[in-house]
Design a protein around this nucleic acid. Sequence first.
DNA 1: TTAGGGTTAG
Length: 694
Amino acid sequence: MYVYEGFGGLYRSRLGPRLLHETERRRRTAAAVELPASATKLCLAVQWNALLRRRCRAGQWAETLALFRRMAAGGGGRRRRSPEPDRFTLSIVLKACGELCNLREGRSLHGYLLRRPQEELRRDLFVGAALVEMYSRCGEMGGAAAVFNAYPSPDVALWTAVISGYQKKSMAEEAVSFFSLVLREKKHLNPNPRTLVSLIAAVTQIGAPLAGKSAHCYSLRRAFLSDLPLSNSVLNMYSKLGNADYVVRFFAAMAGKDVISWSCVLGFYARHGRTAAALELYQRMTAAGFRPNSVTVIGALQACAAAAELPEGRKLHGEILRRGLELQAAVATALIDMYMKCSCSGEAELVFSGMPTRDVVTWSAMVGGYSQSGLPDMAMEVFRRMMMEGTKPDAVAMAKLLSSCSQSGLLRQALCLHGFLLRRGFHRRRFVVAALIDLYSKCGAVELAVGVFTAMREKDAVVWSAMIAGFGINGLPGDALRLFREMIRSSAAVPGGATFASLLSACSHSGLLREGKEIFEEMEVIHGVAPAGEHVAAMVDLLGRAGELPEALKLIAAARQSHFSHAWAALLAAACRIDGGAAAEVGELAARKLSELGADDMAGPYLPLLQVFAANGRWEQVGMVRKTVEDRLLRKIPGRSSIEVAGGIHWFAAGDQNHQEIERTQLILRGLGAAMKEGGGSVFDDAASFHCVD
DNA sequence: TTAGGGTTAG
């Protein structure tokens, strides 16, 4: 007797499946149907399994479990006779429990299994793997390891399942130690390519390149690298642990490559700013006949975004539309990000509005995009819309919003946001705290920034650097240097490039020449941070402000060529602040060097040069520079200042001669100050939060 | 079993 799902329900037939008519077969694959009680009493476990498997394959996990409950209850018929679940039943139902994160039902199945009299079922490694998978998916890794340990002779698949479970639950250290423990204790077990894939994924997560290399060597010795997923894992490991040489060599040596291998290297280039190499690889890949998928185009879009390569980005957009990849939220988000980074907010908005569904990542890309475009009000508006439409912000969205608000420098807004993130528990995330410290610092509320900094228990280099920078931008270089010393003395955080950039900038703005020189030397010699363009520029600025132009020139001569544009621009700016013929000559030299480097596409550097020539009465040169600016239609982005008064924001252009407006504002401020004194207003009501942009 | 969207400090 056979039981089939068919049109209108379930029916019995004495015919075997081969004799069923084709249309009947089609009906069987139709939507799942409710099981009629009368029909089920005759079912055997095999037949139940077929029904369970069908629901399982359709991803109908809840229905799978419901069906199993009916099976356990004897199908609900009069002669309640429940068939004995076999290894297939158990593994299907355990999978459903895992997918639904239903630990209770999974555990009860495990208990049921242990109570079964059949020894072979309890020793069945197939069921064991399903149990491990169920516990892993439910995040109950103790249970998964216990299943492994309970087996008298576990196999490599069971071992791999536990390692993979740990790794997928971001317990990479545990994955590696479980691998080592079993390798030591169970001599009969040898890792297979799958085991190594999970191990290498864990090693990559931890960021342990030595362990990664050793797994690579082991795979070589066992001749496992013909396994494409394994060699892709090794490639990914090298690409994440940042060794460009290994990535290129390993990729070149790979006998077989697939779209994953190509996408992995493409992503590596994009993440490391090697945008031309990334786009060239994309061309090579398509020329070699590989079809780019969503991951590939995301990598290529990231490269375009990093290089602000709008024409390439637009071409990719066309390709994405042709392949129908824009429906994937990840692809559309990468497109939005690319357009935003290429200063095309209009096109980003078009992509955004065409998306069928948006998640918090998409919204954050819009918030971040408007922030980068210098439109903090738009960023706030998008954030509000996101909240209105019921998408909850995550830590990244908060960090982006905070960083956007730091452009407006509105203390009241900062206080509101601080309250909001305290209520939602984001204050525990270090990168959010760093953004908050930065925000308070830019609002001029350095004491509030210090409060946030002090309250953070485990500070990383970013948090420390944010506070150091906060002191610097508030004209407190002594505090910045003191905090840096404290960071070195009392914390395990390692100062990075940005830490030193903040310190040098703090020294430069306050003219602390000796301290700046010490920091610059200490940076490379003691802390092993090679000076980047911004460090050289800050140092040139510091020397230039102190009038030590020859020393600044020496520093540039010793710098790497890639740092030249930063350095000459800094020297030009510095030279313009000094009177005298020597300064004018150095300024002229710097402008010429910038022109040779092709780094003079904005009018910015030319304007101070005009001042230098004018101050020295070199009118002929003034005329020449002016002509260059006019001929090349160069523009300078005008600076603006804002002042917050009683909730409203007043804007001024830099160098605004409209004294009446300024005086009026000052009057309002004075009036407000007096009113607040009378009313005993708190600092949080302070209307005089002042900020300069540019 | 392998790759993948928006992260923070100047």
